[in-house]
Amino acid sequence: MGSSHMPGDITIGIVTALAIEYAPVRKVLEGAHDQHMQGDQKLYCVGSVPSAAPDTPHQVVATQLTRDGTRDAAATVIGLVRSFPSVRTIMVSGIAAGIPDAGLGLGDIVSATEGVVDYSHLRVTGEGTELRRPLGDVSAAVLDADNRLAEHEIHGHRPWLTTLATLERSNVAFRRPSGGETTTVHRGAIGSADILLRDAILRDGLAHRHRIIALEMEASGVATAARLCGREFFVVRAISDLADQKKDDRWHGHAAAASTAYLHALLGALMPEISTPTRAGGNRNVDGLPRIVEALLGSRAVRDEHTRSQLIDLLPAYIRSGVPYSSTPRIHVISIVSTCSGYPSGREALLDSLCVLLGEDSPEFGALAAVIRQNWSRA
């Protein structure tokens, strides 16, 4: 087994649905080893992947869903973030169905630069059908990395093809079923729902209506859970079928390997997130922690899970990545204050985030700022 990693070292989480998707991900992790976390029944694989900083690799945790589908994906992300609270970005890797009219063929790679569309979350009225709400945008940092890969591709540099060739040599399951074709990268929106689709007419209708180029069954759950946990997300897929009657499993292995290869290249173009070590003594300067917590819980904005996630998003990355998620508002607020208190700049970071969320001139911010300053000394 490889060297042990503490949860605080890890900033990237990778989620896969199937064993054939999980296998190549484990293969590209350096020093990969299994890890159990106390209070969590999932088995995780921990390792590292090169980053855009040569001497600082990404520390990564990967896991496989118990079952495919959006619900299990959401539950898995929440559990992963609870066990590894320093994870900042959740990545999805695996297979998808492609839209032929968008130019996608078997084995092609899809980078979800335009996000994820939950095409089953609908409002149906006499005037027609429309999506109920967006899932949130993809990680800006990973999107920047994808832009760099796209620019490099123009000059003929495709590092994912080298990784894919290595995976194909490592296991016959990852090899391309038929030779001669080239692997093309497509960028756009991916549709996600709990629907295993084998209907070309329905497929093309969804593609036209929602401007999606591929279909899968987990990303909308990952996106929802990532938003609720105050984390970022990104999705990479590769095409294993075309969502028609010809759908079979022959391309699963190669598509899973192609997706992993491109995700590996994305991380290689992404700067690592460096967390500042938590100061020893934790919240020793928060003399009135209970009073601060009660004041924050008195704010409707902080009690609401959605806006509380926005508050966390406004914190500096090195702080927000360490805030454990809880569905219980009181526990979550305690975690926010306790995590902020571990940093010399934590009090001001929390005040700045509340100022942006509530408005500098709002009476609510003024009252909360007074309680925080009165009960939390700087030194």
Score class of each variant (00 low, 15 high):
Asp194Cys: 08
Ser309Asn: 14
Ala62Trp: 04
Gln41Val: 10
Ile10Lys: 02
Glu232Thr: 14
Gly156Ile: 07
Ser111Met: 07
Ala379Leu: 10
Ala23Met: 09
Ala96Lys: 10
Ala189Arg: 12
Ser111Phe: 00
Pro54Gln: 02
His210Val: 00
Pro177Thr: 11
Gln41Cys: 02
Leu167Asp: 12
Met217Ala: 14
Val124Arg: 12
Ile90Thr: 05
Leu18Trp: 11
Pro363Ala: 03
Ala102Asp: 08
Leu314Met: 15
His210Asp: 08
Glu218Asn: 08
Ile99Pro: 02
Ala74Asn: 03
Ala200Lys: 15
Thr163Ile: 07
Ala189His: 08
Leu314Ile: 14
Lys246Leu: 13
Ser3Gly: 14
Phe84Arg: 04
Glu218Trp: 07
Arg175Trp: 01
Ala269Tyr: 07
Ser240Tyr: 02
Ile334Asn: 02
His121Asn: 12
Gly103Thr: 12
Arg308Tyr: 05
Gln38Met: 05
Gly281Gln: 09
Pro159Trp: 11
Ala74Pro: 01
Gly346Asp: 12
Leu106Ser: 00
Val15Gln: 04
Leu135Cys: 12
Gly115Trp: 04
Gly128Phe: 11
Ala96Tyr: 06
Lys246Thr: 14
Asp40Ile: 03
Ala173Trp: 00
Ser309Asp: 15
Ser86Gly: 03
Ala96Met: 06
Thr63Trp: 02
Leu357Tyr: 10
Ile90His: 03
His155Glu: 13
Lys27His: 15
Tyr44Met: 01
Gly180Val: 08
Arg158Ile: 03
His33Leu: 08
Gly2Thr: 11
Val302Tyr: 03
Ala17Arg: 05
Ala243Pro: 04
Met6Leu: 15
Gly79Met: 02
Thr16Val: 09
Glu30Tyr: 00
Thr76Ile: 00
Ala280Trp: 07
Arg158Asn: 08
Leu311Phe: 07
His332Cys: 12
Asn285Phe: 05
Ala53Glu: 08
Arg373Asp: 14
Ser338Lys: 08
Ser335Thr: 02
Asp304Ser: 10
His264Ala: 10
Leu43Asn: 11
Asp118Gln: 15
Thr166Pro: 01
Ala367Gln: 13
Ala280Ser: 07
Ala112Ser: 09
Asp204Arg: 13
Pro329Lys: 06
Gly298Arg: 13
Pro50Gln: 00
Ala75Asp: 13
Ala243Phe: 03
Ala301Tyr: 11
Asp137Glu: 14
Ser83Asn: 05
Leu228Cys: 13
Asp108Glu: 04
Phe174Ile: 09
Gly268Ser: 11
Arg347Lys: 15
Ile95Asp: 03
His58Lys: 04
His5Arg: 15
Thr307Ser: 15
Leu350Val: 09
Val110His: 04
Ala17Gln: 06
Leu131His: 00
Arg148Ala: 08
Asp249Asn: 14
Ala238Glu: 02
Ala317Arg: 12
Pro7Arg: 13
Arg123Ala: 05
Ile78Ser: 12
Ala261Tyr: 05
Asp204Ile: 06
Gly359Gln: 01
Asp137Leu: 10
Met37Ala: 13
Thr113Lys: 11
Thr260Gly: 07
Pro85His: 00
Ala207Asn: 14
Ser321Phe: 00
Gly69Thr: 04
Gln35Asn: 05
Ser338Leu: 05
Ser220Lys: 03
Thr66Ala: 13
His121Ile: 00
Asp241Met: 03
Arg284Asn: 07
Val293Phe: 02
Gly39Arg: 00
Glu294Arg: 11
